[in-house]
Design a protein around this nucleic acid. Structure first.
Lengths: 225, 225
DNA sequence: TGGCAAGGTTGATAAAGGTCAAGGCGAAGC
DNA sequence: GCTTCGCCTTGACCTTTATCAACCTTGCCA
């Protein structure tokens, strides 16, 4: 697609603010982006935290061209910047484009449904367990599930942010992680987590969930390339 | 649109079950429909409760033609039943159709974002207040907001279900409603609620929210007629 | 009209998570 | 090597909501 440019930003950079006039939308190539909104009293509601492959800002075309949330870089990103005006034309003119966007939106919707469910059915340690599981290779490739050797993962961003992402306080996160350790035989050292018994973790985290592991994930990469 | 039929069902009727092969999707003409999924231990996660004008089951076209949730009638409905196969063809062949579906999906997505936010920022009485506010005429027509006379609304379905919809226990709902009464000058008699001071209710319920009253609502009626 | 069932309320108690305050720990800079 | 700052953890306490149990209310049906 022509008319794009690559932007590179560091932690803390604000890509756009809620309500702002929207001209560009973005695809993440590397790094992590936080989508959020703020209440009158200054507390943040985190809508999502997106990794590589995801789009953000694109829904502004359905919102009278203002951004429906704010976006902040939380881990250094490379992102593709694209014109919303052109997106609008593409959506109108190219049926296959609208269709792939529709598909990606449907996937996101399913993900959000799951998110709501998690918040009401899982307790804090389970939500963390679920979060960790989504970071494992086994989550995207079922073949890797059988492997008995320990799985090592790194938390992709600050624990405080993960806590916010999961809808809990940092203190609760810390305590819940301790509880998770006691229940599922994982080792935590800083941002590094070793899973010694994947099945135990799955059993613990996914028992309160309506879908089996690996639960659906959003992967926007099929759209807008 | 040709090839449709009207179905009429009573409370308790299950339109379809999660995972089932999907052939039809539906538009609600009257009544209320509960979308939900179940965990292994039998507890329900309510995804949404939809009124007149809303579509359900249509996302099955993006899910390998199986329903991504179960649907139960909770207040007697008239609903239009339509072929998913035809929907699929329409989406592929008629760009304007895909586009309007895209728009409705974007609206729904925004609504779900708000839903997640409500769950984490509002407490039980506030969530109930928010729910009641959405039932008022003032929510759809800002002109009605100034009216000083009391507003009377009827809860559209059982309190137990509203509680589940709002992610709380029936007992909590009952107590939270009492607390809401103490704070906002409303009168509750069975399923009938009288709001004597709309602004007070808005101030109480919407203070923990990132969007002002009236917050966005989903209205699917623009799609698929 | 009396009984029953479903939905709703109330009370007592427990668990989960939030809040406030203090302190630990490790990476970056001097 | 020492200091400093940001992030994280821990402890004490409090608020909110869940849970369990009992009871009330209403509408329906025999």
């Amino acid at each position: 697609m022509e008319g794009y440019s690559i932007e590179r930003h560091n932690k803390g950079y604000i890509a756009f603010i809620y309500g702002e006039d929207a001209h560009r939308y973005y695809i993440i190539r590397r790094g992590w982006v936080k989508l959020y909104r703020e209440t009158l009293d200054g507390s943040q509601a985190i809508i999502d935290i997106l990794p590589r492959g995801h789009i953000f800002g694109e829904t502004a075309v359905f919102e009278h061209n203002t951004y429906p949330y704010s976006a902040e870089i939380i881990e250094p990103v490379d992102m593709i910047s694209l014109s919303l005006k052109k997106l609008n034309i593409l959506i109108q003119d190219r049926p296959d484009f609208a269709l792939s966007m529709l598909k990606s939106m449907a996937r996101y919707r399913k993900q959000q449904d799951l998110e709501i469910e998690h918040r009401s059915l899982q307790n804090a340690p389970q939500r963390i367990g679920c979060f960790i599981l989504r970071l494992t290779p086994a989550h995207t490739d079922p073949n890797l599930r059988v492997k008995a050797v320990p799985v090592t993962i790194n938390l992709p961003y600050d624990k405080t942010l993960i806590a916010a992402r999961l809808g809990m306080q940092p203190e609760t996160f810390s305590r819940a992680l301790t509880k998770l350790k006691e229940h599922t035989n994982i080792t935590v050292k800083g941002a590094t987590i070793e899973i010694h018994d994947l099945e135990a973790l799955i059993a613990y985290a996914c028992s309160a969930c309506t879908s089996d592991f690996p639960c659906q994930d959003l992967n926007c990469s099929s759209c807008c390339n």
